[in-house]
Amino acid sequence: MKKLEEKPFAMIGVNCNNFDAKKLKAAVEKHNLNWRSFADQGAINEKWNSPPTPTYYVLDHKGVIRFKWVGAPGEKALDSALDKLIQEAEKDTKKPK
């Protein structure tokens, strides 16, 4: 994931343990997680149909769901999905206005 630092990309977690921010912080530090996560006490899960964990959604730069995996998709599938959408995003921003 390191190589994506310069790219129009972000990884955002939704924690599904019903933690408040403080408890989430402790978990993030304990497991050395380097991404930003929402602390959820149920509202987000309700809105997203309480997916089993792990579930992965990939949204394009317009906020449209383009990929969805319940369970880990494997590095290859994830990389190729992200590459494809990042290229789309970069192409879109380079367009003359």
């Binding site: 972000a10 939704v14 921010a21 996560s37 992965y56 906020g63």
Partner: peptide, 24 residues
């Protein structure tokens, strides 16, 4: 919602970027 530092933010703040949204 709130992130681990108690900071409020929205998913839509990231429009313009590709987002991997990870339920964990």
């Amino acid at each position: 919602g709130e992130d681990q530092d108690g900071k409020r933010f929205k998913l839509s703040d990231y429009r313009g970027k590709v987002v991997l949204l990870y339920f964990w």
